[in-house]
């Protein structure tokens, strides 16, 4: 594998994992605009555990996920009190606070960042990405996934059907935080250097857009969204500025023609019908 290709694949893997973290909450109807904060938590946890305690890579990754999940779980209760725009803003605030705390903590390197001693190959990122994608599909294929989508569509009716919407939302938020932490840990280990400035509002916005453009109705959405926006610019070999400009144009156009995202249930159903030209149980 060439260096360039392996670099692109690693970024793709990290983006896909990150996208699933946001997707899990979005599937219950909640927009998390603070992804970068949870990713930062995982990245710094991983870096510290590796540098200070010399833990093996796999353990540091597990702890990134656990810490991301634990912090998400704790803040899920106050955050999920908020709704709609307030929830978007609250998660946004959390990411800003996390970045602010890192910038002000000398132990974490403050604004100068932190070098990570341990190192992983692209293959590790890809294996973890595959596991997370399978996990995402698995969750959405169960009754829990069904309940999550029901909460997304109509909280009140889901509640009357016996769905514990609070448990579903807190659970989704926690799992999302854990996966975001994991993606941060992978980022830290792969790039070997982390700084608070990287985990900024733009990162949170991009990952949310991957998910929304991919589509929140099925587990295909984040996979398609993250891959599309990571690979297309690479294929076109365009500069960073143009890349984001085109990204913006695509979003505006997408919202006009396919506001529910690239992959929708109806589209999937049509594709399956054509492939197997018969009735199919979803």
């Amino acid at each position: 594998m060439s260096g360039y290709l392996s670099g692109v694949l690693a970024i793709l893997g990290i983006n896909i994992i990150f996208a699933y973290s946001i997707y899990i909450t979005a599937a219950t109807g909640q927009l998390n605009l603070g992804g970068a904060g949870f990713q930062a938590i995982g990245a710094y946890a991983c870096a510290l555990l590796s540098n200070e305690l010399g833990l093996p890579i796999y353990l540091t990754l597990v702890f990134s996920a656990i810490l991301g999940g634990a912090i998400s779980f704790l803040i899920a209760f106050p955050v999920l009190r908020t709704k709609g725009v307030y929830m978007v803003l609250a998660t946004f605030a959390i990411a800003e606070i996390v970045a602010g705390i890192i910038l002000n903590t000398d132990y974490l390197g403050g604004p100068t960042g932190m070098i990570v001693n341990a190192y992983i190959e692209t293959e590790v990122v890809l294996v973890v990405a595959v596991i997370i994608v399978i996990l995402g599909f698995y969750i959405m294929s169960t009754r829990i996934g069904l309940a999550m989508r029901a909460v997304h569509d109509d909280e009140a009716v889901a509640d009357l059907m016996g769905v514990d919407k609070r448990a579903i939302q807190v659970g989704a938020f926690t799992i999302g935080g854990a996966i975001a932490g994991l993606s941060g840990g992978l980022y830290a280990l792969y790039f070997g250097f982390i700084e608070a400035q990287y985990f900024n509002a733009n990162i949170s916005i991009f990952v949310l857009l991957y998910v929304l453009i991919g589509g929140t109705q099925t587990a295909w959405g984040p996979l398609v969204g993250a891959s599309f926006f990571t690979l297309i610019p690479e294929a076109l070999r365009i500069g960073d500025d143009w890349r984001f400009f085109i990204f913006g144009v695509i979003i505006v156009i997408m919202m006009i023609f396919r506001p529910e995202g690239i992959v929708t249930r109806d589209a999937l159903e049509r594709v399956w019908r054509q492939l197997f030209s018969g009735k199919r149980n979803v």
Partner: peptide, 11 residues
Amino acid sequence: IRLMPHLSVLE
């Protein structure tokens, strides 16, 4: 009618 708009009939 308050069926879930994004779920299939079966779901």
